[in-house]
Design a protein around this nucleic acid. Structure first.
Lengths: 128, 128
DNA sequence: CTTTAGCTACGAAATACATCGTATATAATG
DNA sequence: CATTATATACGATGTATTTCGTAGCTAAAG
């Protein structure tokens, strides 16, 4: 039996994953520079975090050159699911519909987006 | 200008809020007993957590009797919004639609629920 | 070749959080 | 009245997370 831990990434790790997902791969420098637009911390902080993520297996890296290049080991989708499920459980009484309704209600959504949702909704109705 | 901190409740706090929301108000004993179904910890742990929440202003309490009765100071809806927004930001590239699509796609949703969503969707389309 | 700039490694401190043990007060029980 | 059960208060510990400073390596610039 293989150990199934699959720990959620932390806040800080999530911010870094975000950059890696957007760029496909990135150096510490790039990640740090990007994060600076959002938060404020030293370069070595970002570095350390990414090193920890590497040790955890959350990211891979190519260290054949001086500048190490990192890539995410988890997909955005898988992580989204992970957090969504957690959230549905702990905040929406287990009902994904509640979450959807709340999310739809909160934000103003463009016509384009409403269409996308309608399409998916139709598909779901089909399969019934 | 009033200080706008509004810190997110932690995991543990969320579990407690959940019970308070469901029961409207509750003693430490009740909260603890309920939590035991889900997690495993000592009574004083729950107590301490609730005391901290009180100090933070996350909950109120009636301590006129020996058994203190707690109530949530934040609504479920407000907290849901808080977490949803955070999540949309950090995991869904700012698009609530992405979140909705992902949430709908993951779980199997009953016909009843699909209808509810359809109703809201129609309303949103109307207001365009 | 020496200096400088940029990089990684790593220990250490600061912070946040969850957990528990012990002290103390008080109501209920016998 | 003494004992027991049940409350709250609170300090202390353990662990996770974040942050930073410093050391050491190497390539580029002078």
């Amino acid at each position: 039996m293989t150990s199934v831990k699959s720990n959620k990434p932390t806040e800080g790790e999530l911010e870094i994953l975000q950059v890696l997902w957007n760029n496909n791969k990135a150096s510490v420098r790039t990640v740090h520079e990007t994060l600076l637009k959002v938060k404020d911390c030293g370069y070595t902080t970002t570095l350390k975090l990414m090193q920890i993520m590497f040790k955890k297996g959350l990211v891979s890296r190519d260290d054949s050159n001086k500048i190490h290049i990192y890539t995410a080991n988890v997909t955005r989708e898988k992580t989204q699911k992970q957090f969504l499920n957690k959230m549905i459980d702990s905040l929406f009484a287990g009902s994904s519909t509640n979450l959807v309704l709340q999310a739809l209600g909160n934000h103003k959504t463009s016509n384009e987006e409403l269409k996308k949702i309608q399409v998916l909704l139709n598909q779901l109705k089909q399969t019934k």
